[in-house]
C-alpha cells in the first residue's frame, strides 16, 4: 500500500511498527456518534472528573475526516444505519470502532424491528463494551484495551502475513481489565489465574476482599 511495503523487514520494521502504533494509540481522536443515553456517559468521560485528555483523546471531532475512532454510543435504529455507515466510510484509515453499551453491541433490550441488532451488522467493530449505560470507567477500560490492540497491530499487509506465518497471531491482546493491567501485582495474579482459567473467580475474590459491599 505505502512505503511500509517497500522497506526491508527486520529490526527496523518492528521498531517503526512500534513507533507508528504508539503514535496512533496516543492521540486517538474520537468521532462523536452519541445516539442515546450512552452519549451522556461518553460526555462525562470527556469532562474533568474522568478526563479523556489523559489518553490524548479530548477532542471529539464532529467531522469524521479528522477522527480515528468511532464510539457508537447508543441504540442504532434501522434509519440511522446508513448514516452511521457513511460517517464510517468518511473516516480516513486507519480507523477503529468501539461499540458502546449493550444496544450498540447486540440490540440490548430492544429486540424489535426498529433497532439494528448490533452495529457489527453495519461496520466492523473492534471493541464491544457492555453496560446500560456503561459508567465512564468502563469506557476508559474499553479504550485502554483498544490501545493494547492497536499496539499489537501489524504495519502493512506484508508484516501481517509474516506474523500469521510465525504463529504469533494466536496470542490475544486486550483481555486484561485495565485496573489489573496497570497494577503490577494484580497483573501478575491475573496472568496466573488466566493460565488456570479462573480469572473470573479472581475478580470476585478481590471484590470480596475489598469489602466495598459491606
Amino acid at each position: 500500500m505505502g512505503i511500509e511495503e517497500k522497506i526491508p523487514s527486520g529490526v527496523l520494521l518492528t521498531s517503526v511498527e512500534k513507533l507508528v502504533n504508539w503514535t496512533r494509540k496516543s492521540s486517538l481522536w474520537p468521532a462523536t456518534f452519541g445516539l442515546a443515553c450512552c452519549a451522556i456517559e461518553m460526555m462525562a468521560t470527556g469532562a474533568a472528573r474522568y478526563d479523556l485528555a489523559r489518553f490524548g483523546m479530548e477532542v471529539f471531532r464532529a467531522s469524521p475526516r479528522q477522527a480515528d475512532l468511532m464510539i457508537v454510543a447508543g441504540r442504532v435504529s434501522q434509519k440511522m444505519g446508513p448514516v452511521l455507515r457513511q460517517i464510517y466510510d468518511q473516516m480516513p484509515e486507519p480507523k477503529w470502532v468501539l461499540s458502546m453499551g449493550v444496544c450498540a453491541s447486540s440490540g440490548g433490550m430492544f429486540n424489535n424491528y426498529a433497532i439494528v441488532q448490533g452495529v457489527d451488522h453495519i461496520v466492523p467493530v473492534d471493541m464491544y463494551l457492555p453496560g446500560c449505560p456503561p459508567r465512564p470507567e468502563m469506557l476508559i477500560d474499553a479504550i485502554l484495551r483498544l490501545h493494547d490492540k492497536i499496539m499489537a497491530e501489524p504495519l502493512g499487509e506484508r508484516r501481517r502475513k509474516m506474523i500469521a506465518e510465525s504463529g504469533e497471531a494466536a496470542k490475544r491482546v486486550g483481555t486484561i481489565p485495565s485496573s489489573y493491567r496497570y497494577n503490577k501485582a494484580k497483573r501478575r495474579e491475573w496472568l496466573a489465574a488466566e493460565r488456570e482459567g479462573t480469572q473470573e473467580q479472581l475478580r470476585i475474590e478481590k471484590w470480596m476482599q475489598e469489602g466495598a459491599h459491606k
Partner: peptide
C-alpha cells in the same frame, strides 16, 4: 451481583459468560 464492571471484549462470544465463569470462588 458484584461491583465488577470491567467487561469490555473484542468478541461477542466472549461476552456470553458461562456457568464456570459465573460461579463464585471456592
Amino acid at each position: 451481583m458484584s461491583n465488577e464492571y470491567e467487561l469490555a471484549s473484542d468478541s461477542r462470544a466472549d461476552l456470553i459468560f458461562t456457568k464456570e465463569q459465573l460461579m463464585a470462588p471456592l
